[in-house]
């Protein structure tokens, strides 16, 4: 990697974003903008006319019961699964033309971890753009990948086969791979599912640092108890959008009741009413 491209790698994503904002004609620059999104599996609608705005710099959670279509919303918004209708833009540009602006952390369980690759190999996947097609990673790419592993506390595991990792370690490697993409928007699908407390704290630390750096974070989140602690905005989803906005305006007992129905215990609703 040349000195110049190394510099680009570390250039603040916010600067890149602002450059674009001046050229664009939108008043508010959204990192991700979704309008009229409808998705169905086998003619069964999963998402119906969903609109979502993720303001640049926000830490936003997508919250909702099982089967609400949270992961589907992420994948459809990023164009990874077909949609029946809807328009999605990343920083004002069509998603297909702005792939370099979003890093995606899929669900940990979506891949087979019994795969012949080391922790470093997987992290290097995030540097695909820097390395380029048909090229093999060089020493500078390896060094950069080790740096991203260090940010998630996995530097000592770089040469470990991924089949030997715990769930929490797998999640950290996925995060390191996404960090390597250096994208202004980070999209995470259930990053806290089935991991240890130490990993949860490590991930939260990284997300806070990214947020202070001006990056936008969008995550599917399950735990209503920690949602307002980790995120500042929320979209409450149950096939359709129940509510969207600042966390305290979304997590109200009435709106949660509308999203979860009887699935949320009365005591949990009272706790929210009291807080």
């Amino acid at each position: 990697m040349s000195q110049a491209s190394l510099h680009q790698l570390h250039a603040s994503p916010v600067e890149a974003m602002q450059g674009e904002a001046r050229g664009g004609d939108r008043q508010i620059l959204n990192a991700l903008n979704v309008r009229g999104l409808t998705v169905s599996y086998d003619r069964k609608p999963v998402l119906w006319d969903v609109a979502m705005s993720v303001p640049a710099g926000a830490r936003m959670a997508i919250i909702g019961p099982n089967g609400a279509g949270k992961s589907t919303l992420l994948k459809a918004a990023l164009g990874l699964i077909p949609r029946l209708s809807g328009e999605c833009t990343l920083f004002g540009a069509p998603v297909a033309k702005a792939r370099d602006k979003v890093a995606y952390v899929p669900q940990r369980a979506s891949v087979d971890w019994d795969f012949p690759a080391s922790v470093l190999d997987v992290t290097l996947m995030g540097l695909q753009r820097q390395i380029g097609w048909l090229r093999w990673p060089g020493a500078s790419h390896r060094a950069a990948a080790r740096g991203f592993l260090d940010q998630v506390g996995m530097a000592d595991f770089a040469d470990r086969p991924i089949g030997q990792l715990s769930g929490g370690q797998q999640q950290r490697v996925f995060l390191a791979r996404a960090l390597a993409q250096q994208a202004p928007l980070l999209v995470l699908d259930e990053p806290f599912a089935g991991i240890d407390a130490a990993t949860e704290h490590a991930i939260i630390d990284v997300l806070h640092r990214l947020s202070q750096d001006g990056r936008t974070i969008l995550a599917v989140h399950h735990d209503l108890g920690t949602a307002s602690q980790y995120f500042d905005r929320a979209l409450l989803l149950s096939g359709t959008v129940i509510a969207e906005g600042a966390m305290d305006q979304v997590l109200t007992p009435a709106k949660l009741q509308a999203a979860y129905g009887g699935r949320l215990a009365a005591s949990q609703l009272e706790a929210f009413a009291a807080s």
Binding site: L78, L80, P106, V122, Q128, R129, L134, Q181
Partner: peptide, 22 residues
């Protein structure tokens, strides 16, 4: 030999690869 890295990526995690534009 040339597409080794890309073939590995799409075999391991096709969703991630698609999002990268691979």
């Amino acid at each position: 030999g040339l597409l080794w890295k890309e073939l590995r990526m799409v075999s391991f995690d096709p969703g991630f690869a698609n999002n990268l534009g691979v």
